Deep mutational scan, measured.
Amino acid sequence: VTTYKLVINGKTLKGETTTKAVDAETAEKAFKQYANDNGVDAVWTYDDATKTFTVTEMV
């Protein structure tokens, strides 16, 4: 189990959160659900070296 981080650069929601998951795909599903629940529709990137997902909402 690995800890993954999500950085949110949204128009109305900004911040960071983490989740523990067995792999990046599982973490991504959890983070996308979190973003969807909070109304963030954005572009996703992932950095495997830092285990960090970044979501940037387009203006």
Rank of each mutant, 00 (worst) to 15 (best):
K32E: 03
K32F: 05
T19L: 15
T12N: 12
A21M: 02
T17L: 15
T17Q: 09
N36F: 14
A30S: 07
V55W: 06
V7I: 14
F53Q: 00
E16A: 08
M58H: 10
E16F: 14
Y46S: 00
T26Q: 12
I8F: 12
N9S: 09
W44Q: 00
F53W: 05
Q33C: 06
V7G: 01
A21Q: 04
K29Q: 08
T17E: 04
K29C: 05
K32I: 08
F31H: 01
V55S: 03
K29W: 06
N9L: 13
T3R: 04
V40I: 15
E16D: 05
K14C: 15
E28G: 06
E25Q: 12
D41C: 11
G15V: 15
A42F: 15
A27S: 01
G39L: 15
Y34Q: 04
W44R: 00
Q33A: 12
D47W: 02
V59A: 10
K11C: 14
V43Q: 09
N36W: 15
M58V: 12
V59K: 11
G15A: 13
T26R: 05
T50N: 07
V43L: 09
K5W: 12
A30P: 01
A30W: 15
I8V: 07
T3M: 09
K11I: 14
V43H: 10
Y4T: 02
Y46P: 00
D23E: 02
M58Q: 11
A42N: 07
K29V: 07
I8A: 03
T50C: 02
D47V: 03
L6A: 02
E57V: 11
K29E: 06
V40W: 15
V43W: 07
T12L: 11
A27L: 02
E25K: 12
T2W: 10
A30Y: 15
L6S: 01
Y34D: 01
T18C: 13
A21P: 01
T26H: 10
T26L: 05
T2F: 13
N9H: 11
E28W: 14
V1S: 08
K51A: 03
L13E: 07
D47C: 07
N38T: 12
E28H: 11
Y4W: 03
A42C: 12
T56R: 04
M58A: 10
V22W: 08
K20W: 10
V59L: 11
D23T: 05
D48H: 07
A49G: 07
D37G: 09
E16L: 11
Y46V: 00
T18N: 04
K11T: 11
T56I: 10
Y34M: 09
G10M: 15
V43D: 06
D48F: 05
K14Q: 10
I8S: 03
D23A: 02
T26E: 12
A30D: 05
N38F: 15
V1L: 15
